[in-house]
């Protein structure tokens, strides 16, 4: 099972480290990372594998959201299917 993590906000040191630390603690594997500046905002998109995850989904989602608040960023995790179903036939 895969999920997409999006980080949107002002670029700063340590974003990837912060997110990947949480993911490592939860045993979530990072499959792909892309980052870009879109409409003046730093945007990082991570594709992750959550099939071996040690916590429940809402727990990981809460941890990421909390970290985002601490760093002044928006960090979200969503099941990959929402993007596939909207953009792929």
């Amino acid at each position: 099972m895969r999920a997409v993590i999006t980080v949107i906000g002002k670029d700063k040191v340590g974003i990837i480290a912060a997110v990947s630390n949480i993911l490592a603690d939860c045993n979530v594997n990072i499959l792909d990372i892309s980052q870009t500046i879109m409409q003046d905002m730093f945007t990082m998109i991570m594709l992750v594998d959550i099939s071996q995850m040690k916590v429940i989904f809402s727990n990981l989602s809460d941890q990421l959201e909390k970290k985002g608040q601490e760093m002044g960023l928006s960090i979200k995790i969503q099941h990959e299917d929402i993007f596939n179903s909207m953009h792929r036939i």
């Binding site: 997409v4 999006t6 949107i8 792909d32 892309s34 870009t36 879109m38 945007t43 998109i45 594709l47 979200k76 990959e80 929402i82 993007f83 596939n84 909207m86 953009h87 792929r88």
Partner: peptide, 12 residues
């Protein structure tokens, strides 16, 4: 894979 543009479009 889903492109960043598509991800951002959905989130927006």
């Amino acid at each position: 894979m889903i492109t960043p543009f598509e991800v951002i479009e959905t989130i927006k």
